[in-house]
Design a protein around this nucleic acid. Sequence first.
DNA 1: TTGTAAGCGTTATCAC
DNA 2: GTGATAACGCTTACAA
Lengths: 334, 334
Amino acid sequence: MTTIRDVARLARVAPITVSRVLNNAGPVNMETRARVETAIAELHYVPNVLARSLRFKHTQTLALVLTDITNPFWTRVARGVEDTARRFGYSVILCNTDENEAIQLETVNLLLQKQADGILLVPRRNGAALVERIRRQQVPVVVLDRHIPGLPVDIVRGDSEGGAYALTRLLLELGHTRITLLSGPEDVPTAADRAAGFRRALVEAGCNTACPVLFGEYSYTSGKALALQALAAQPAPSALFAGNNLIATGALHAVRESGRDVPRDLSLVCFDDFPPELLVEPFFTTAAQPAYELGCQATHLLLERLSASSTGGPREIVLPVEIITRRSSGPYTG
Amino acid sequence: MTTIRDVARLARVAPITVSRVLNNAGPVNMETRARVETAIAELHYVPNVLARSLRFKHTQTLALVLTDITNPFWTRVARGVEDTARRFGYSVILCNTDENEAIQLETVNLLLQKQADGILLVPRRNGAALVERIRRQQVPVVVLDRHIPGLPVDIVRGDSEGGAYALTRLLLELGHTRITLLSGPEDVPTAADRAAGFRRALVEAGCNTACPVLFGEYSYTSGKALALQALAAQPAPSALFAGNNLIATGALHAVRESGRDVPRDLSLVCFDDFPPELLVEPFFTTAAQPAYELGCQATHLLLERLSASSTGGPREIVLPVEIITRRSSGPYTG
DNA sequence: TTGTAAGCGTTATCAC
DNA sequence: GTGATAACGCTTACAA
């Protein structure tokens, strides 16, 4: 490895002079600068950011801790984060936790050790402990997608309650009164919020009792299982509300495997849209969250916290959700 | 920030002793160890990996430089990489380059500065220069998905030529003789390889001349544009072969917007499958690459190169591609 | 305009 | 078993 010292030797200057050339900091004679630059090129010198970070006490690195990049929702969030980070000279370490609290803790510890300048976190139940831990190291955190009950912290998320409410209203207006919510984990705030919005709409309409909420995982397989469970009820639901996109496809496939079809026998709506370029045909009536925007805004907020200038109290940014009507929902036919 | 020195002070030992406890290296008295551990807990000490890496000369970090994580193909590759890396105690820095050579160079430079222990690269035209640059810094590289003409280097990729050949054969056997290939960029080896496989099958069947190859981008919008262009030809093709998954959906949507439909008026096959959990219904007849596996194997190879034990010449691992027949392809109807 | 010395937080080396 | 010292590659503060 060639170091700043090697360059200095070759250019017959002190290391600090090379440093000055490298960073365009401090005065350097045109001629010496040229000599240094020649030496740099000749030796193919690459500065060691580790050493620099050790001095500077910052790494120009942000961490994004999410559940599973395989979900297109998170993919787009991640792009939002990366694009924004990059624009401000930061790179991003991406970590999947698969909703596993042990992995989550381990991941956060690692990121702290790696001296990430800031962390974007999609927490599970242990969110509060995690945030405390991060904060104790003076590292700014922004919580993404989920709020942490009772803990004031910067948050950027979609309007789960409102979106679920609107989507449920849509089903009610189509005449459905037996709707089942196939939800994510009960202890994940988005799942709880969507359940709350669901119930609010139902209570307003006076058909709360006929509409169960089933909690599971935010996954394809869980969607299948939940749908089967919902379909087995007596009387069977006339509409299904999937808590996220993967639950939706899982549910759809289960419905079909049971010999029924959507929207013929059943309506099916869901949270989180699929981008058109992944689809043969737009199908699901959904509450679409601005995923990319979520990532951008969260990153902006985090960067703001980094530039110590920002010292206000915790902020919660709630992005609106768009209701899109498509083929998967139809009027109640009895 | 609390350092190893603070811990040492509190435990009334020398920093090096704390280090020994931390790394379970060297002998430490049971009682001293206990005292140190108490101090660590009390101060919420988090070791600084930067400093450690500076000494050790390795960062336990791999870099994955790909085109766009938004494509489910890359998403699954990335999961393969991350899962494997994690199993061996490495974390992954993910970078999107959007097929842009300038960004690619910039990214590689940054990763070198960050002292990534190894780099997984999905290169564009400037691949050879990039690889040379990385190698000059003694950093192992594995090229993913694409081979670099004339440059011996470790490569893990799918069998583009073979897959395209098989897929074209399938169309020919269905009776199609006017097939258009909607390809990626001509200078991207996968696109060239797929074109080669395509042509080989056609030449064998003796209908080479009636079957054009259109080069574009590996994107949804490019897929749309290419399809429109293909449909405008006289005589119009009876089948379209999309160079990747995004071109396929783009093409499909263009076909539909032009008043035609698949497979009614036209067959449409493609490279790269969508995972079922993203789909309302499996639709495309495809040549499916083992994306996750690609990521795993590439990472394994890279890790092997890292543990200096491996010193053999460049290896090329070509993973087979699976042909899956679905609704989007049908017999030629005249 | 250029250089010297010290230090960022660790750990390897060698001594006790 | 434990510790003093130097070093990893870089930059800040100060001096020349």
